[in-house]
């Protein structure tokens, strides 16, 4: 096997990074149309992972994740506009269901696609104000989460964790106490190093999951469970150490750290926490 990005994938990664950095301040609709123009929704799994990691890094406000990794694998096509899917068997905490143009529903009779406006979906208030989650009222739902959705949340969460670590590293290099940068204290360094290792582990497993989906490998279900579990474990450490190392600054609304902490935690809580997916590995 080969576990390095090829030249095209590296180029894509550069392009995504540049695009995301440039368009940070753009309104949501413009971001969305940029993504569409660049054809990102059509990206195959590994390329999609590359895109989603950077969108996670940027705490992307659009319904890209739900459209590409919830709707598309269930419906077997891209939606007109944005999309999402209900595949948890109950219709709770459905990403972007309150604003999706099309919603795919996994029912006892198979997949049914409906116009978003026709589906009763009520946005629920959550601690992370930047994500949309909604309760969908529908009967005869069954559960069957696609691997792409697990991988998508996993790699987005890895992106959030990378952002947390970058913010922490910048902060501890610049913040002085006792006459030195706090980043020179070993207790600080070791927390940062552990975050780095956890991110590397989770990132490797998320990319591996994308690769098994791309090649329709027999281990794709296990790989997706590993990816989601590792991302959950990674955000647990990055949330805890990232918040702690910012001191009181991290406790404020103004500091952008909060956005990424919340995104990372939401990434674990949606579609089953690390503990849930660890159990799946044991059967």
């Amino acid at each position: 096997m080969e576990f390095e990005f090829d030249e095209d994938q590296r180029m894509l990664q550069r392009l995504v990074r540049e695009t995301v950095a440039k368009s940070r301040a753009l309104p949501e609709e413009q971001l969305w149309s940029t993504y569409l123009e660049l054809g990102w929704l059509e990206a195959p799994p590994v390329e999609l992972a590359i895109i989603l990691e950077e969108l996670g890094y940027a705490a992307d406000p659009t319904p890209f994740l739900a459209t590409a990794t919830w709707f598309a694998p269930l419906a077997g096509r891209l939606p007109n506009g944005s999309g999402t899917a209900v595949f948890d068997g109950v219709g709770e905490f459905v990403l972007d269901a309150d604003r999706a143009d099309e919603i795919a529903l996994l029912t006892a009779d198979g997949v049914v696609v409906r116009e978003g406006a026709e589906v009763r979906a009520e946005r629920v208030a959550v601690f992370d104000p930047t994500i949309h989650v909604a309760r969908v009222e529908q009967s005869e739902l069954v559960a069957g989460v696609p691997e792409l959705a697990l991988m998508g949340l996993a790699i987005s969460t890895v992106g959030s964790c990378r952002r947390i670590l970058d913010l922490v590293v910048a902060h501890v290099k610049q913040r002085q106490q006792f006459g030195v940068a706090i980043g020179s204290f070993q207790a600080v360094k070791h927390k940062a190093a552990d975050m780095y290792v956890a991110i590397e582990r989770a990132r490797a497993l998320a990319l591996y999951s994308a690769l098994t989906i791309a090649e329709d490998a027999p281990e794709r279900a296990r790989a997706a469970a590993m990816a989601k579990a590792a991302a959950g474990e990674c955000q647990r450490l990055c949330f805890q150490s990232g918040f702690q190392l910012f001191g009181a600054m991290g406790y404020t609304w103004e500091n952008e750290l909060q956005i990424h902490l919340k995104r990372a935690k939401a990434g674990d809580l949606l579609l089953g926490t690390a503990a849930v997916h660890r159990k799946a590995l044991l059967v």
Partner: peptide, 25 residues
């Protein structure tokens, strides 16, 4: 075994190998 910690072992082995492959770059 089917104890909860065993999942970590499976994941760590997979991740270590993947990171090792990548280090070949």
């Amino acid at each position: 075994c089917d104890e909860e910690w065993y999942a970590t072992l499976l994941m760590d082995f997979q991740a270590l190998k993947l990171l090792g492959y990548r280090q070949l770059g």
